[in-house]
Amino acid sequence: MTLRAAAVSLSALCLVAACTTIDDLPEERVGAATLRTASGLPAGTAQLLRNGDTISVAIAAVGLTPGEHGFHLHTTGNCTAPDFTSAGGHLNPGNRTHGSLSPGGKHLGDLPNLVVGANRTASTQVDLTGSATDILADIFDADGTAIVIHAGPDDYASDPAGDAGARVACGVVEAA
């Protein structure tokens, strides 16, 4: 097993271990993405999980620079290297402003920063806002959705994208 594969497995195990009771375990995996860098190297995985009317994004990333990185759902399921601009802007079906600190509040594609440790790995799970039916319809629309990790942190306020810098990893969300 490669070091990267071991890190991804360990991160996924940590996500499951963080659950406090059996009731907290997701009922269903509804989607997944394999994240890759511009050079094609694996950068982690993301899972869409459903528990009742709650949809969560669970991500395990490897090989990134330590520190905070913006990560978002992007409007188009296309990850063409080297810059991943093919993924379009943030997934924003309600045409809201960007960021939890903006006066209009965040949109569907806004997620909290991913914190990468000194070992160059990160994992987190984030609940998406809205009904499961609406979220899944927006994610699995005709042109799909991508998950993008940026080079720098999201400032949670700059519209339209949080000033998070270049796109360093991308994965297309596929239905499970």
Rank of each mutant, 00 (worst) to 15 (best):
4 R>G: 13
104 G>I: 00
87 A>E: 08
51 N>E: 04
143 D>E: 15
69 H>D: 03
124 T>L: 05
46 A>N: 06
20 T>C: 14
93 P>K: 07
56 S>F: 03
25 L>W: 08
50 R>D: 03
60 A>E: 00
33 A>N: 08
49 L>N: 06
152 G>M: 09
1 M>N: 14
29 R>W: 01
176 A>C: 09
143 D>N: 15
51 N>L: 05
24 D>P: 05
56 S>Q: 12
126 V>S: 05
146 A>K: 11
54 T>H: 13
84 F>T: 07
112 P>A: 01
82 P>A: 06
82 P>D: 08
17 A>D: 03
31 G>E: 14
133 T>W: 08
57 V>Q: 00
176 A>R: 04
42 P>H: 08
173 V>T: 02
129 T>P: 12
145 T>A: 05
144 G>W: 02
171 G>L: 02
103 P>N: 11
120 R>F: 06
3 L>F: 09
37 T>Y: 10
108 L>Y: 06
154 D>Q: 03
167 R>G: 01
66 P>G: 04
116 V>M: 03
148 V>N: 06
69 H>E: 07
124 T>R: 10
16 V>Y: 00
44 G>L: 07
91 L>H: 10
126 V>P: 07
128 L>Y: 09
18 A>N: 06
146 A>E: 04
142 A>N: 15
16 V>F: 00
43 A>E: 13
41 L>M: 12
52 G>F: 00
99 G>R: 13
62 V>S: 06
169 A>P: 07
134 D>C: 04
20 T>I: 12
83 D>E: 11
59 I>C: 01
99 G>N: 09
144 G>M: 07
